[in-house]
Design a protein around this nucleic acid. Sequence first.
RNA 1: GGCGUCAUGGCCGAGUGGCUAGGCAAAGGUCUGCAAAACCUUGUACAGCGGUUCGAAUCCGCUUGACGCCUCCA
Length: 493
Amino acid sequence: MQLYQQQQIKIHNSLTGKKEIFKPINEGHIGMYVCGPTVYSNVHLGNVRTFMSFDMIFRYLKHLGYKVRYVRNITDAGHLENDADTGEDKITKKARLEQIEPMEVVQRYTVDFHNILNTFNFLPPSIEPTATGHIIEQIELIKTIIDNGFAYEVNGSVYFDVHKFNKSHEYGKLSKRKLDDLIHNTRALDGQSDKKNPQDFALWKKAEPQHIMRWPSPWSDGFPGWHLECTAMSTKYLGEQFDIHGGGMDLKFPHHECEIAQNEAAIGKSPVNYWMHANMLELNGQRMSKTTGNTVNPDELLSGNNKFFSKAYAPSVIRFFIAQSSYRSVLDLTDEGLLASEKGFFRLMDAINLLETLKASDKSTIDIQAWKKACYDAMNDDFNSPILIAHLFDAAKYINQVKEGQASVTSEDLKVLAETINTFTFDILGLENVTKKESGTDKLSGAVDLLIKLRQEARANKDFALSDKIRDELAEVGIQLKDGKEGTTFSVN
RNA sequence: GGCGUCAUGGCCGAGUGGCUAGGCAAAGGUCUGCAAAACCUUGUACAGCGGUUCGAAUCCGCUUGACGCCUCCA
């Protein structure tokens, strides 16, 4: 019996705008695709937030016993800079700017991306395919769409015929747009386009002579269009229809809309059962933007080397901060917010670290099974991590109460409590117990225990000058002493 | 201009047609040699204006404001 057979998940489906009971296509198996980064610059913090949300979702689904194939692509083929035919590939542009090979740019920023995600304790996806590794699949997909009559070739480029598609299908159903509205609101393009209609989008672009990234195709030496790679790779690894497709809110239109259109045009089926969109991350109440300077890189946030934040924050603190809001809400990144989360985070860690010191009684003063169920209920409700965290704090309070002798727990319940809180905090939220030192722990705690003992003696002798000196100077090097009923413990900040 | 999302206490941030979210901050108390930590107690919030309802902050309409997409962007 797997856990998922006892838990019923609800997911907010962008397609319907409602929370729906989640039912995978194949029982016990889940296919999940998330649009990955374009590796032409350092990974964006907002990007990290989105992937972190899906990392948590991936972790929870796995915890429930599902066999999850999680595919997150790397876009390394570059997207067009604009609609015009003179549009330059983003990656090519950067390469020229920096006088290096396109694939060198891709390599550098792919490594950066992985480094950042590792720092944040991400689980790797099951498959991380690259767009350049799937050119053949994309060409085959274009052929099929042309054969089905939904694309046309002009001067070596191939475009998706949105108007024709819309006659038999519903273009815009994900983003709730009507083609008529789009027609009336499309700006006039500068220069000439080969497209029949401005709403059409490229499946294949003929490469200009100076364009370095290019592949042969039946139509021209060129490169695939913006939206094609995700369709090709999701179909290849997850099948024509799969369970969950995620990404940032800003990808809803046109990117995801076009993915649906490509799938329906090629295969005749809508590819995804549950579309999930993570909301935006703001910095001090405003969208992050390189042009206005209102932006901070993940490594700058982690190092504290930036002008927005008063200090460096541990990766788990940032993770905790993000988990304290719902993935569907706009989240405002501020120094105050991070400071508040940091305090809460360490309070939670301190409580968890007290678990092994708790003494069991013959009676529990809370209903541990009800608490455990509440944790699952929170995550089952569209992965509501803020509610889960509220329950974790309830447990922290309970742990402290038991420690203080104001509450009690049976050894059986203590086991359930410890197991559950560890599972949700570390396995599912992906937090790391940073107050526990990995190496040198024994030596450090041996030394601090000695100081604690000396301080005890000083206090017994009423030599408070000495005892306070030990306490205060330890605090200065980041070691906080905590006097409790059972003696003194310490934590390292 | 079009489409969409959202407006919650000092701050952050959930949720809900009638019953405590939670965190941070604040105040009082317990403990302590004094502190810190921990625990206990306290705050009665839901943009404005109408409407539906026995009852709405929660549903509907309008107004105002913020944000996203419509052009690469998670």
